[in-house]
Design a protein around this nucleic acid. Structure first.
Lengths: 189, 189
DNA sequence: TATATTTGTTACCGTATGGTCACATTTTTT
DNA sequence: AAAAAATGTGACCATACGGTAACAAATATA
């Protein structure tokens, strides 16, 4: 049998990502990862230091919503902020990995996940930080951003929220429009 | 030893509620409930039909955010809608049980939880349904409502979101103000 | 080539899970 | 009082979890 540590580590790490994406935080476990990777679970402890070390590795690689960083400079004026928002919401709904980390933060926060959340939130803060001009506008914007996250996560298991169809593309366009409109109105004198 | 089925059923049901409130959806399990109730788990199957039946019982009792129903009629004009929102957000942040059901919907949706979510969401729909006057306003309102839910759930494990302090009372007052202001601005010609 | 070292697997441990069943005890009915 | 029904428990099963240790096989070093 061929032996290759680097390749094995890669198999383990990929398996972890796949499970997180497919089964969510609840599916992530030593046994499941080892099985998915087709490798003995003892190696996860030897090479990564168990779940905690695995999450730390994940955190330090830090490939979260990287596509947003490219347009990070555009947040200066109103029009660019709006397009930034649109890009951000699109990215959020496409990036399942990011979704699952956000979901994870809603259900636990222990010694294992600590480092992951720390790095992830630092990245979020760096990406989505906007200069606060108006206290109420800021709160309104954050609420809508949080709402977008909420509905995105909710749509995994629910097709509707009250009367809103979460499977309809129109719904998400309406959300984008609502955010833009809100910012616009707040910005008027 | 005294035997009293009604009292035992009550002990089981109360134990279920306590665990859901204290440990969240993840803590809810047959063994944990039986232990908390100080009763043999076989009785949960005999009297409730297992977890599924227990959740159905919970669903049918339907004591979700009841305090809101009392002010349900007030949603007719702008000022009353705003006060209704304020009451709603207050209730949400105080009602841990409601929070945990909302959290539950973000992480699973199986045969056991099906009935619970169905009844719960029907109640939510009945309570928070507002007549849609403007498509964009409606989306903005829903986003902010969702954001409020998101931050409420997030605050259980996280003290901050980006630069926002989720433990500060001022933060939540800002949120309330933002919702009111948004509705107000949308309502102007 | 012989010896270390690294890599990988299997088997095991303790614990916890959901679920069932036989049995003892209490309460109700006859 | 005797029989029947309801109530409650403890033991047990299969399965899964995280974690460890002993051992085999491959690779690197001497």
């Amino acid at each position: 049998m061929k032996k290759d540590r680097a390749a094995t580590e890669d198999k383990i790490y990929k398996a972890f990502l796949d499970i997180l994406k497919e089964k969510g935080p609840q599916g992530v476990g030593i046994n499941a990862i080892a099985k998915e990777a087709g490798v003995s679970k003892a190696l996860i402890y030897r090479y990564f230091g168990g779940m905690k070390g695995l999450l730390l590795t994940f955190a330090q690689k830090g490939d979260f919503f990287k596509s947003l960083l490219a347009i990070d400079e555009k947040k200066d004026n109103l029009e660019n902020l709006k397009s930034f928002i649109k890009e951000g919401t699109k990215e959020l709904r496409e990036n399942v990995l990011t979704q699952e980390i956000l979901r994870w933060q809603l259900i636990e926060n222990n010694e294992d996940t600590k480092s992951l959340f720390k790095y992830f939130n630092a990245q979020v803060g760096k990406t989505f930080a906007i200069e606060e001009k108006d206290k109420t506008l800021n709160a309104a914007f954050q609420l809508q951003l949080g709402g977008y996250v909420y509905f995105t996560l909710l749509s995994k298991f629910n097709k509707t929220f009250i009367a809103t169809d979460l499977t309809s593309e129109t719904t998400w366009e309406n959300f984008d429009e609502a955010i833009a409109k809100t910012i616009e109105m707040f910005s008027k004198p």
